[in-house]
Each structure stands twice: as C-alpha cells, then as structure tokens.
C-alpha cells in the first residue's frame, strides 16, 4: 500500500471503526426529520417530554439488559419479571375493598423491600439455571418468562390493583416542577449503568466475558460469577421498572408489560450493542431508546392506518438492524 493510500485507509478506517456508533445515530436523525416534516405537532418541546416519559420504563429495563447482552447472554423474561414484581409490590399494599388480593396493611418501605427481594430471587433462579445447571440463557429465561406470568396470574387472579406505596407512586408518576420523576430515575439508572460498565473492574469483566468467554476463563476470571451477576442485575432492573410502571400506568394487572420485552431488546440491539457480546454499552442503548421512542411516538403523530403502523414499525426496526450489521462488517474489515 502506498503512503497516500494508507492515509486514505486511515480516514476510512477511522470512520468505519465508529460506524457502529454512527449508524443508529443516522437512523435517529433520519426518523426525526421525517416525522418533523410529516407532522407539525411532532417537533415540539411538549412532545420531547412525552417521548422521554414514554421511553423511561424501557430505559430502566434496557439498562440491565445491556449488561446481559454484553456478556453474550439474553434475558427474555425481563417484561414478565417486571410485571410480576410490579404486582408483588401492589400485593403487599392495601388496596380498595373490592380488590380481593392479600391487602396487607404493611408499611410502604416494607412492600418495596419485599418486591426487590422478589426480583433478586427471580434473578438468582435464572442465574442458577444458566451457570450451575448450564441451561442456555435463551431457554432458561423463556421458562422464567412463563414463571413470571404464572406468578402474576396467581397473585391478581384476573383483577386489577391500583394502589402502590407512596414512594413508588412518586417515582413512577410524580413531577418535580415540569420534569417527570420517572425520566430522572431512568437517567440515573443509565448513568449508574454506564459508570459501572466503564469505570469498574466488574464492568471490564462483563466486556471481557462477552468478548471471548474462553479467553476470560483462561485469564482467571470467574466467568460463571460474572454471568450470574448480570442475570441478577437484569432481573432487578426489570423489577424496579415494573414497580414504577405500575405507578406510571396507575394499575397493576396481568400482561401489562408484554410490549416491553421486544422494545427493550430492540433498544439495546438497534443502538449497536452486539448480540454476540463484548461490543456496545449504555451510550449505544440510549441512542437505541431514542430510535424506539421517536418511532413509537412519531407514528402516532402522522395520519396513517393504525393497523399499518405495527407493520411499518417492524420494517423500520428491521432496516435499522440491517444498517447495524453492515456497519459492523465494515468495522471488522
């Protein structure tokens, strides 16, 4: 290669290497421009606040899922665990007389602690299945998805519960001035997630295990412990998202979170975090969340057949993934 060619290669390579990060950003900008052009009500400050609010619960789930996917595992039970833990916190809270569930007169803090413990317990079951027994996470969390749904069904028996502890109500549906608290909570989760992944030893191990599991093992990393930890982190993030979601929606019932499974996985992957592990991170997830949020919100602002919207949404997600795969290929060339 001549000098000039090498110089060109350098620039090209520089762009190529950042393309995984740039590609979803381009998708995002493209979507914003299209929706702004098609609807005057889209590009407003009010609507930005809407979008932020709408992606907040997904963001909390996606924070945990980013850890999981970075280690090249997957968690299909996130939405189900969210639902179950949301119902657990309501179950330990005094409800109206006509809601026939436990109706325990427990202090709110107690209900929250019990709900978080439930999330940890569900995460530990998943972790044990994956690391001790050796069930692939795809299958193990598929079972947990069903178990979570089962817990929901048993606890509410087809009813709807409305009351949650005041703290949860504040975090999920309160406002500080004009800012929805749930947006702040989501931002805190993302920030802490990013900090842990980037600046701590544990975070480094998460990337290394995902980058080359065998090499991590040969380097003396306790791969099973790291894997188990991310599964628990995934469950706890989902559980907290579930509790706040109950407050956000104002009720706890079965199948309430079903959309969040696809949304949270899509956010992480569309953002550019590799399903094969080791590549990506929270900044990518944030871009992915915005792509999802803008897409979901924008389609409501333009005048098209509402039955067609689902299909369009799927096609745009597919397109984003295709762009990511090509960007990835350019990077490793």
């Amino acid at each position: 290669m001549s000098d000039t060619a090498a110089g060109h290669g350098g620039v090209k390579q520089w762009i190529a290497r950042r393309l995984t990060a740039i590609a979803p950003l381009i998708t995002l900008v493209f979507l914003v421009l299209v929706f702004s052009a098609m609807s005057p009500s889209f590009a407003t400050l009010d609507n930005l606040s809407n979008i932020l609010r709408q992606v907040s619960i997904t963001a909390i789930i996606a924070t945990g899922l980013t850890f999981v996917i970075l280690t090249a595992e997957i968690d299909l039970s996130v939405a189900s665990v969210a639902n179950a833990v949301g119902i657990v916190v309501a179950w330990f809270t005094m409800q109206e007389a006509y809601v026939n569930i436990a109706n325990l007169p427990l202090p709110g803090a107690f209900a929250i602690i019990l709900a978080i413990l439930a999330a940890v317990a569900l995460g530990l079951v998943t972790a044990a299945g994956v690391t001790v027994i050796g069930i692939p996470s795809f299958i193990m969390t598929l079972a947990m998805l069903q178990i979570g749904a089962g817990i929901c069904a048993m606890l509410v028996r087809g009813q709807i519960a409305y009351n949650v502890p005041p703290l949860i109500k504040f975090l999920g549906s309160g406002y500080i001035g004009p800012v929805p608290v749930i947006v702040i909570v989501a931002a805190v989760f993302l920030a802490v997630g990013h900090f842990v992944l980037t600046y701590t030893r544990f975070g480094r191990y998460v990337y290394m295990v995902g980058g080359n599991r065998e090499a991590a093992e040969f380097s003396g990393v306790n791969v099973k412990l790291i894997t188990a930890s991310v599964m628990v982190i995934g469950a706890v993030c989902s559980g907290i998202a579930g509790m706040l979601g109950v407050a956000y929606y104002g009720s706890a019932q079965q199948n309430q979170f079903d959309d969040f499974l696809l949304d949270s996985i899509a956010a992480v992957v569309v953002g550019g975090t590799s399903l094969f592990g080791g590549v990506g991170g929270i900044p990518y997830t944030i871009i992915g969340l915005f792509v999802l949020g803008v897409l979901n919100n924008g389609l409501d602002h333009i005048d098209i057949d509402s039955f067609l919207k689902v299909l369009i949404r799927g096609l745009i997600l597919l397109l984003a993934l295709v762009i990511n795969v090509y960007a990835q290929r350019l990077r490793t060339k």
Partner: peptide, 13 residues
Amino acid sequence: VPESRGSMLFSDV
C-alpha cells in the same frame, strides 16, 4: 497459556 491464540486473547480489545 493455552495452546491456541483464539482461546487466550481478546482480538477486538
């Protein structure tokens, strides 16, 4: 240090 580089090293790191 195992016999194969692939099982020892993180190539994109």
